Computed example of a mutant assay.
Amino acid sequence: MTRLRSALWLPLFDGLADPMAVARLAAEAEEAGWDGVFVWDHLRWRAPVGHVADPWITLTAIATATERLRFGPMVTPLARRRPAKVAKETATLDRLSGGRLTLGVGLGSDRFAGELSATGEELDDRLRGEMLDESLEILTAAWSGRPVHHHGRHYTVDGVSFLPRPVQLPGVPVWAAGFPGKAKPMRRAARHDGFFPVNLEHPDQLADVVATLTDLRRQETTPYDVAVPLPPGTDPTPFAEAGATWWLAEFDPEEVSLDQVRGVIHDGPVDIAVEQIR
């Protein structure tokens, strides 16, 4: 048995668009016993949000302001990022933090701010899924330290070595996002280190997700994470009993403030025993 880990899940909007302010929050969270701080990855958001910070610069600030917290983007839409650049960024950030980075990945969406269409990115979900999977292949190969020879439909990396490697071996843990019950995201998540369910409504849904992941991973023996976002004040116990290993305190992106986050930090993390998924 282990315990349910507690983290903050922060939209980097308006009052939280200052990386130094978020780094100070992360340091306060670490001191208060929280296990992680994860951040949204967006270029913009719908009104009334006006200010949006870059996640990677903010994560660098978090890394230097803390010593123990796990952190990362939750989630980054890999289809709008170059995988070779992400390979270098993730390895460097993992080394800077002493091996504390978790990479959350997903398809991304044009729904909330039109950020994909506004910047000429791929809008077709199926193609972005292909790009996501191909990017993950490149990242896995890059983190090995060996030369990467990848010639795919969307990307080419021809004989490049990405050194130094991340501190974490064989590479940075990857949590894949997806809607519960959708086959492709579940299969993608099962190939990696964790699942981040989107729009989860009930613990029974999570129990079904965990059962599916356990079946897909029946040949695996390494520990596996399921991270569930829940509003502050929600009792995470039923979700822990259904198989969650992390709960992420989520905030309304259009109303979040430094004071609100600080209040949740001071309320403290939870202390719930869970059985680690394998």
Rank of each mutant, 00 (worst) to 15 (best):
V256P: 00
A7K: 04
L12K: 07
R278N: 12
G15I: 00
L230G: 02
D94Y: 05
W56A: 04
V209H: 00
R153S: 12
V226N: 04
G99H: 13
W246P: 01
P11V: 05
R126N: 06
Q260C: 01
T237V: 12
P180V: 00
A17C: 11
W143C: 02
G129P: 07
R3I: 06
F38L: 11
D225K: 02
T58S: 09
R165N: 01
R165D: 01
P166S: 10
P166Q: 08
P173T: 07
A207P: 01
F38H: 04
G145Y: 03
D125F: 14
P229F: 07
W247Q: 07
E250Y: 03
S161N: 14
E115N: 08
T66C: 10
P231Y: 06
T60M: 05
D158G: 10
L78R: 04
W56H: 07
R95M: 11
G263R: 14
V167Q: 06
F196T: 14
W175L: 15
R80V: 07
A190K: 01
L258W: 04
L25M: 09
F112K: 04
V167E: 09
E31T: 14
A211D: 12
R111Y: 14
T2C: 02
I57T: 15
T66Y: 05
G159H: 12
A183G: 06
I62A: 11
D54E: 14
R46T: 13
L4I: 05
E31M: 13
D110N: 14
V264H: 09
T64E: 14
S135F: 04
